[in-house]
């Protein structure tokens, strides 16, 4: 029975002709600029773009448009410094980040698990799918009042609102990710005599990871959205509250400062997801440059 392997692994008594057509690879030894030039240039122009927009904002404010509407970068920076100093920024940002992260983790976990289950139990999945899509289509702001009735106005309500938003995105992407696995790969696994568990772990899960990660990635800003919307609807803490209270006090610098913090949080979360993505899907062609 081991005859084939012995043959195939035996001494190289016949230099394989196939080897002749194997491509050759060798170190490229390109200069630093040839390797990184484009990256550096793109980074440079990003900085330029940012500076230009900020300068334009600063120049326009108070001259062309009333500061009451658009504030200006220096006021916003001052406000950020002040809030950082007196602890307002950290106290409120922490609440929002906690709600976002907790909501994201809960929503993503339930979404992934249910996505796999309903994709593998195909008939059940087909039955449930239109209802899931209908629920997904409801704007989450519209159900916020209901969440207040159910869960009160404390942190729990925002966490669950964020989780509900995240859940559907992760769930639907996982579902289509598992369904999109090529039948050839599953058959290849079966031909290798993989049992059900091995098929799941070694073929179906890695094969659907692209879809799962798409869901995880697009859901990140929505977790933040859910949390902030929850705070806007009813709360006395968090960045959403900070935005609302600043706006009602006709304090545009406060609104913009809070928005800057929200933006920074969103970008940091995106960065984390991208790093994770790059780590687990190295086998895919690199995605186009994105934030």
């Amino acid at each position: 029975m081991t005859a084939i392997r012995n043959f195939m692994t035996g001494s190289k008594h016949s230099p394989s002709a196939a080897a002749a057509s194997t491509p050759v690879s060798f170190p490229a030894n390109r200069s630093w600029w040839a390797r990184h030039g484009r990256t550096v240039m793109i980074a440079f122009w990003r900085v330029v773009l940012f500076v230009v927009v900020m300068a334009a904002w600063q120049f326009t404010a108070g001259r062309l448009v009333d500061k009451l509407f658009i504030s200006c970068p220096s006021d916003v920076a001052q406000r950020l410094a002040k809030w950082t100093g007196n602890g307002v920024l950290w106290a409120n940002a922490r609440i929002t980040v906690e709600e976002t992260v907790l909501g994201y983790v809960i929503g993503a976990a339930v979404g992934v698990v249910l996505g796999f289950v309903l994709a593998l139990l195909d008939t059940l999945g087909r039955i449930a799918e239109p209802f899931m899509i209908a629920l997904y289509s409801i704007p989450k702001v519209a159900v916020a009042p209901l969440f207040i009735i159910w869960f009160g106005i404390d942190v729990r309500m925002k966490v669950l609102l964020a989780a509900a938003t995240v859940f559907f995105l992760v769930f639907l992407n996982t579902l289509s990710g598992v369904r999109a696995i090529e039948a050839e790969l599953v058959n290849a696994g079966r031909l290798m005599d993989a049992n059900k568990r091995q098929l799941l772990i070694k073929v179906i899960v890695p094969g659907s990871l692209a879809g799962v990660i798409t869901g995880l990635r697009v859901a990140v800003p929505y977790a933040l959205l859910g949390a902030v919307v929850g705070e806007l609807v009813a709360s006395n803490r968090g960045l959403g509250y900070l935005i609302l209270s600043s706006a009602s006090a006709f304090d545009p610098a406060g609104v913009f400062a809070a928005l800057v913090v929200v933006t920074v949080i969103a970008m940091v979360l995106n960065l984390v997801v991208n790093l994770f993505d790059r780590h687990v899907t190295r086998w895919r062609p690199p995605a186009r440059e994105s934030v």
Binding site: A188, L191, G207
Partner: peptide, 20 residues
């Protein structure tokens, strides 16, 4: 009744696991 490793089957289409 089902696949086994005693039979090797090279299908027409590629079926290497792209993540391996």
């Amino acid at each position: 009744l089902g696949p086994s490793q005693e039979i090797g089957y090279l299908t027409q289409s590629d079926s290497l696991m792209p993540w391996r």
